[in-house]
Design a protein around this nucleic acid. Structure first.
Length: 577
RNA sequence: CGGGGCGUGGCUCAGCUUGGCUAGAGCGCUGCGUUCGGGACGCAGAGGUCGGAGGUUCAAAUCCUCUCGCCCCGACCA
């Protein structure tokens, strides 16, 4: 492709609304253009990137025996009511939905479990027809509460979703394991540095679940990784060993302490400099909502620990948990927020404790009275120890659960997520088959997602410098860029044309910056911005058939035309090996 | 949904507090000339219902009301 024929427009300034590098660079380079919040046009360059990613995704799925199909974006409400997800998704505001001309409600699919389950249940009758896995690459629609970061969190985005169908839990696990390998292969081939982590399965439900995180400081997710043991998990899910509490002090009677204005552990440390943080127990109030009711839950935790709301949510099996508002706190404790404690809570409050409180004695806790705490409190003497469970948020430096090493907290971008769904959808939608024993059983499902457009964004997030993007070769819009310094110069024209023809003949996608009346400086800046990894500069030495090998990163070399072609061949081979 | 902010040529922004003359700058764009290896320079140009509607006023980008859109923080999030 010749750049002069491309309607190639770059911006010198960053768009005002770009917050992360990938967004700013893609917008500057004309790869994407915003149409509305979280909704983008993918320009020709971007579309090439997306198609390259799609092709890798396709090849790896096909290789694993998955079957590609395409499901509708528009889906009827009835289907979603069958699975029981309509109300929840509408209530969360995430669903684009509207009435058709007959007044029937439909939605734009945010995901396709309902459709695939329906499709499959009409076809599968026997265990002999399984295992089978389908996938599609489709535009998904989610009316995100807060779209941001360009393609990273859009309201319309490209996703590959796959669904496996098996006759038993064991078979489902085997399909899941196969897919784990497919995912590893895909992200490796895309040239990304990534970490697979154990994950919470969230609203979609199911048991086993793993997320694929592209390592990037700007990622929205925090992950806990242990180098020594190889453990890696989303912090929502991560577990750790924490240091035991300090030995109990001398037992003296529980008593009140005036603590004016001390609402946090930090404030309290100033008032009680000799009391270790591990002997201050905080009590945090949450409002948990269930289908039919709400519950106020108080959770105790050691002063040096934080509470993991996802673990709490899962333990309670609630639809949602959120911090209680001030009004609720006052009602539950009879005090201003900041003084909640386990003793003297209102009767309707359910008291729980994080495992970090176990063994802590002679501690400080809220007094359920404004400006007051209790000191020298002992479990089993002054109050029964509340039921405890792991509600803790792992912290950087925690010991891994097996004790082999320390956890460090890093950040990542979730580009893939795989789930063992079990029979959640097949039961709700009665997708059954007849097993070998003649009995009708629910199909065991797994589902597997890759954010295709997010993969592209995260590749830039992970690979860029001050001047622009640096694409991994397998997903670059073009593999090679020919930068011709002065289009119209006979020697340069001839050499550039020769290179262009030869590279094309070799089946390599090449872009030729043949623009006239564009200064060398501007060409170099544009080349850096769009980040095509392999570059050959045709300039002043063209008369001697000399060109420059000048990859996006790395050393520049002056070579003959043949030398440059050879160099290119080697670079492309390295990539494929 | 709660809090905050912003809508002015294609892009980034100034002007608005305190209403007043043909609404400005830089980038980009067009033409001519000079340049020509890291976003060149000169000269001459094109391009704006100041997000929209209504109102106040002799007069509105500027003040008021409504409305639409966008951004940030939070909640939320396969």
């Amino acid at each position: 492709m010749k750049l002069s024929q491309m309607l190639f427009v770059t911006l010198r300034e960053e768009p005002a609304d770009a917050e992360v590098r990938s967004h700013a660079l893609m917008a500057r380079a004309g790869f994407i253009q915003k149409l509305a919040a979280g909704i983008y046009v993918y320009g020709p360059m971007m579309w090439r990137v997306l198609r390259k990613i799609e092709n890798i995704v396709r090849e790896e799925h096909d290789r694993a025996g998955c079957l590609e199909l395409l499901m509708p974006a528009v889906q009827p409400r009835e289907l979603w009511q069958e699975s029981g997800r309509w109300d929840r998704y509408v209530q969360d505001g995430i669903l684009f939905h509207f009435a058709d001309r007959k007044g029937s409600e439909v939605c734009l699919g945010p995901t396709h479990e309902e459709v695939i389950t329906t499709f499959v249940k009409r076809q599968i009758q026997s265990y002999k027809q399984m295992p089978v896995t389908f996938y599609q690459i489709q535009t998904k629609f989610r009316d995100e509460i807060r779209p941001r970061f360009g393609l990273m969190r859009g309201r319309e985005f490209i996703m590959k979703d796959a669904y496996s169908f098996d006759p038993s839990a064991e078979a489902m696990k085997a399909s899941y394991e196969r897919m784990r390998e497919v995912y590893r292969a895909i992200f490796r081939r895309c040239g990304l540095r990534f970490t697979p982590v154990e994950a919470d399965s969230g609203a979609i439900g199911g048991s086993g679940s793993e997320e694929f995180m592209v390592d990037a400081d700007t990622g929205e997710d925090a992950i806990a990784v242990c180098r020594e043991s190889g453990y890696a998990a989303n912090v929502e899910k991560a577990v750790s060993q924490i240091a035991p509490p300090p030995p109990a002090p001398e037992a003296i009677a529980m008593h009140k302490e005036p603590t004016p204005g001390a609402k946090s552990c930090e404030d309290l440390q100033r008032l009680f400099p000799d009391l270790p943080l591990e002997r201050m127990l905080k009590t945090v109030l949450y409002k948990a909502s269930f289908t039919e009711r709400e519950e106020i839950v108080a959770v105790m935790a050691r002063g040096d620990r934080e509470i993991n709301e996802v673990k709490l949510l899962n333990f309670l099996d609630a639809l949602n948990v959120e911090l209680a508002d001030e009004q609720t706190v006052r009602q539950a404790t009879g005090a201003e927020p900041g003084f909640a404690g386990p003793i003297g809570l209102a009767d309707h409050v359910r008291l729980l404790a994080d495992a970090s409180v176990e063994g802590v004695q002679g501690f400080l806790c809220g007094g359920n009275e404004t400006d007051t705490h209790y000191l020298d409190v002992w479990f089993d003497r002054d109050l029964p120890q509340p039921p405890s469970h792991d509600f803790g948020l792992v912290q950087d430096g925690d010991l891994s659960e097996d004790g082999q090493g320390r956890l460090s907290i890093t950040r990542g971008i979730e580009v893939g997520h795989i789930f063992q769904l079990g029979t959640k959808y097949s039961e709700a939608m009665s997708a059954q088959f007849q097993d070998e024993d003649g009995k009708n059983k629910a199909i065991w499902m797994g589902c597997y997602g890759i954010g295709v457009s997010r993969v592209a964004a995260s590749a830039i997030e992970q690979n860029h410098d001050a001047n622009g993007m640096i694409w991994p070769l397998p997903i670059a819009p073009y593999s090679v860029l020919l930068v011709q310094m002065k289009a119209g110069n006979e020697d340069q024209d001839r050499v550039a044309q020769e290179l262009y023809d030869q590279i094309q003949e070799a089946g390599v996608d090449v872009l030729w910056d043949d623009r006239v009346k564009v200064s060398p400086g501007a060409k170099f800046k544009d080349a850096d911005l769009i980040g095509i990894p392999l570059r050959i500069v045709i300039g002043r030495d063209a008369k001697d058939r000399k060109v420059e090998w000048k990859p996006r990163v790395g050393e520049t070399e002056v070579l003959t035309v043949e030398g440059a072609l050879e160099k290119l061949k080697v670079a492309l081979q390295e990539q494929n090996s």
